[in-house]
Design a protein around this nucleic acid. Structure first.
Lengths: 209, 209
DNA sequence: TGCGAAATCGTACAATGTACGATAGATTGG
DNA sequence: CCAATCTATCGTACATTGTACGATTTCGCA
């Protein structure tokens, strides 16, 4: 067993007085720098040396704060899910009829404005933390749909199943649209993206049977 | 200017008697080898040296047949779209009601059985050839939907727009489901994939208003 | 103030894509 | 049938990548 010299029973906030008490902040800084690079030049440009260079430190310094390139990617993905959850909730409580549209637009806006990050989020292996974030976001959608359906006669197991199905369809469609738009594969569909979103939502929104 | 010594005006089938007349076959062999590696070990394992090694040749030899790694990827993508178009048409003419289901299942089967290739197909920059293949596949779907709708009173511009919209929704949903399934992000949706497909199809199939 | 721990980073190594050029072999003109 | 030319092959080399290692510096604390 590890000796753990004093072991007062109460571990300090940052156990082992991590990194001169500035560790978390520096990790954040590294992640933000990497995210900026990812956004501007794509995933291939997010090299350890490049990120370190932007920060004016040696490449190996990053290893003190993140667990190698894989760990850096993980941090970006985690931050991405936080941004997505936050962004989706903005000006859209999913409570009104127009709420679906707003939430969906927010989701797609995030994907279109952060295409490299969005791709990474759904390509990189997910940590447990990421799963929690994704699950949380979906749970929120699920709860909202459930609230609506409970006013329409659904109840018990039926309510749960139907809510999950509708929320799932909604999300699947959003993800499909986002990925195709990012990949530039929507050229086969003439017309602006906005109309496409509206049209899709009308037919896949959770308040549709 | 290049001299082009004889210049008979009629370029031979393989202009410049390409590669001892075995060039195309060898290019195919290289692509197939790369595809096997991609399927078994993922994109990172598809290195020039690894592919060349499997074929028992030097890495630089590949450069005679494909334009570097990027060209190799392009060949894999092109082949992938051919496989997808071919696979979708199998046992499914999209003519009967059950046809939508069959086509969709074929599409998803291809994606699930070739996840690395499917991801590459929708991530790699598309050549004009790829665009033609993708466009062709979508056109087929579009025509089928159009045929159905023309029996339902739609005509003229309305027929075109409605057909494109429904085919688009169908494809978007399929792509979203495929990408989420590949990424292993469907855990939030309990239940088997088959039921998920059925459920989705019922609500996004092109014969639904 | 001094000691131990932690952070920093220079160096080095393996793996990658690929440019270059030598070599061997096929093709062709005479 | 031979020599000239062209072409496929691939060994070598270089730049770039992630990162393991260890020396050195810096810091926290007693």
């Amino acid at each position: 067993m590890t000796p753990t010299p004093p072991t007062t029973g109460i571990p300090k906030p940052t156990s082992k007085r991590w990194h001169r008490a500035g560790g978390e902040h520096r990790k954040e800084l590294i992640t933000q720098t990497a995210l900026r690079l990812l956004h501007q030049k794509g995933l291939d440009a997010v090299t350890m040396r490049a990120v370190a260079g932007k920060l004016g430190v040696g490449a190996m310094t990053l290893y003190t704060y993140v667990d190698g390139q894989n760990g850096l990617h993980r941090e970006m993905v985690r931050t991405g899910f936080e941004m997505l959850n936050q962004g989706c909730a903005e000006n859209s409580t999913l409570d009104t009829d127009e709420g679906w549209r707003g939430g969906a637009r927010n989701y797609l806006r995030f994907a279109m404005e952060n295409p490299n990050l969005y791709k990474l989020m759904f390509d990189h292996f997910m940590s447990d933390e990421d799963k929690d974030l994704l699950h949380g976001g979906f749970q929120h959608l699920f709860d909202k749909v459930k609230g609506r359906l409970s006013c329409e006669g659904y109840e018990g197991e039926n309510l749960d199943r139907e809510s999950r199905a509708r929320a799932g369809r909604f999300w699947i469609a959003l993800h499909g649209l986002a990925m195709l738009a990012i990949a530039g594969r929507l050229v086969v569909l003439e017309g602006g993206l906005d109309e496409l979103i509206d049209d899709l939502l009308i037919h896949v929104a959770p308040d549709r049977a």
